[in-house]
Computed example of a mutant assay.
Amino acid sequence: MPESGALKRKIDYLRRNHFLYWLMAPALVLTILFKYVPMYGVIIAFKDFSYSKGILGSEWAGFEHFEKFLNAPNFELIFMNTLKLSVYGLLLGFPVPILLALMLNQLRKAAVKKNIQLMLYAPNFISVVVIVGMIFIFLSPTGPINKIVTLMAGQPIAFMSDPEYFRSIYILSGIWQGAGWASIIYVAALAGVDPELHNAATIDGANLLQRIRHIDLPAIRPVMAIVFILAAGGIMAIGFEKAYLMQTAMNLPASEILPTYVYKVGLQSGNYSYSAAIGLFNSVINVILLILVNFIVKKLNEGEGLY
C-alpha cells in the first residue's frame, strides 16, 4: 500500500506539472539528437574507415590508431603544448574574473558601474578572427608595440614568429577577451550578499580587505568551485580557431596542439580514423580530469562539488 500511495503521488505530480516537462522536451530532444545520437561515430577511431564501406562496414582496427598516436615522434611535443597552454591559461585566467567582480562590487554609482561593465564585456563579442588580426597588426615588426620596443631596445622583436612568445600572447589575449564576460557569474553571486553583513562588519572595525575575505569570498566560494571544476575538466579542450589562426611556420614548436593536429591529419590529410582516435583520446583525458578535480574539490570544499 505505501508503494502504491507513493506511485499515485508521483502520477498526480506529473499530471499537475506536465506543462513543465513539455517546456523541457525541445531542449531534451535537441540534446539527444545532436549530442548522443552522433556518438555512434566514435567507433571510427577503432576502424580503418572507408567511404565506400561506411562506418559499420569498415574493417576493425582495434587500438591500432591509438598506439600509432602514442608512439608518434611528435606526440610528446603536441601533448605538452596542449597541456601547458591549458594549465597556464587556467592558472593565470581563473583569478582575473573573480578580481574584476570584487572590484565591480565595490562601485556604488550605478552609471559608472554600467559603463565599466560595458567596456569589460565588449571584447567577448569580437570575433576570434578579428582578435587574431589585431594581434598580428599590433605585434608586427612595424606595429605600435615594436615601435616602442625599437625605441627602448634598438631592434624589433618577431613576436609572432618566435615560439617563445606564442603562449604568452595566446593566454594574455584570451584573458583580455574573456575575463570581463566570465566575471558576470561572480557579480551575480555577489549581488545576493546581504548589505547588512558589510554594515555590521564595518561597525565592528573591519576594513575593506577583511570584508572581502570574510564576507564576499565565502559567498562566491561554491560558484568558484563549480567554475574551476568545469574549467579543469576541459583543460585539454582548447579552442581550435585561435591557435590555428595564430600559427606560423616558425612558431609551430609551441603552437601545434591537439585540435590543430586533428584538423590537419583529419580534414586536410583525410585520415579520419586516426584523427578520431586522437579526438577520443583527448575526450577521455578531459573526463578523467573532470572526475579527479571534482573529487579533490569536494574534499577541500566541505562536500561541495559539481556532483
Rank of each mutant, 00 (worst) to 15 (best):
54 G>M: 09
114 K>D: 04
192 G>N: 09
165 Y>V: 04
65 H>C: 04
223 V>M: 14
161 S>N: 13
14 L>E: 08
215 I>D: 07
188 A>K: 03
272 Y>K: 08
123 P>H: 04
149 V>M: 01
158 A>D: 10
162 D>H: 08
211 R>V: 10
139 L>Y: 06
298 K>G: 03
23 L>A: 13
28 L>D: 08
72 A>Q: 11
8 K>D: 10
217 L>E: 00
122 A>V: 12
244 Y>A: 06
224 M>I: 06
29 V>A: 11
49 F>S: 07
30 L>N: 10
54 G>F: 06
103 M>A: 15
225 A>D: 14
181 W>Q: 11
43 I>V: 12
53 K>P: 02
304 E>H: 12
105 N>K: 01
106 Q>P: 11
249 A>W: 10
187 V>R: 01
119 M>S: 14
80 M>Q: 12
185 I>G: 06
203 I>Y: 06
181 W>R: 09
93 G>W: 13
157 I>Q: 00
254 A>E: 01
149 V>P: 00
156 P>M: 01
180 G>M: 09
249 A>R: 15
191 A>T: 05
164 E>V: 15
295 F>V: 05
195 P>S: 06
199 N>D: 12
2 P>E: 11
68 K>V: 00
113 K>E: 10
30 L>C: 15
247 Q>P: 02
1 M>C: 13
53 K>W: 04
252 L>C: 04
47 K>F: 05
134 M>E: 07
115 N>F: 11
125 F>R: 14
269 S>Y: 14
198 H>G: 09
147 K>A: 01
212 I>C: 00
223 V>F: 07
50 S>G: 06
232 A>E: 05
288 I>N: 04
216 D>Y: 07
220 I>V: 15
190 L>Q: 03
103 M>S: 15
301 N>F: 09
175 I>C: 03
144 P>D: 07
298 K>I: 06
96 V>P: 02
262 V>Y: 07
108 R>F: 06
165 Y>E: 09
124 N>F: 05
119 M>N: 06
155 Q>C: 01
123 P>A: 07
108 R>T: 13
219 A>P: 03
137 I>T: 10
285 I>D: 03
20 L>M: 13
130 V>S: 10
258 L>S: 02
192 G>S: 11
100 L>K: 09
71 N>M: 11
7 L>V: 11
225 A>W: 15
8 K>G: 12
49 F>V: 04
59 E>L: 08
151 L>K: 08
60 W>E: 08
295 F>Y: 13
295 F>G: 04
80 M>L: 14
56 L>W: 15
283 S>C: 14
239 G>P: 00
306 L>C: 08
95 P>R: 07
19 F>W: 13
223 V>Y: 07
131 I>E: 07
176 W>H: 08
175 I>G: 04
91 L>W: 14
297 V>L: 02
19 F>H: 12
43 I>C: 01
235 I>C: 00
29 V>S: 07
214 H>A: 12
153 A>H: 04
26 P>C: 07
302 E>S: 13
238 I>W: 00
209 L>Y: 15
280 L>A: 12
80 M>S: 10
197 L>D: 05
145 I>C: 01
197 L>C: 06
271 N>H: 11
301 N>I: 11
244 Y>H: 03
305 G>T: 11
291 I>L: 14
184 I>Q: 13
104 L>C: 01
142 T>S: 12
89 G>E: 02
184 I>W: 10
205 G>E: 05
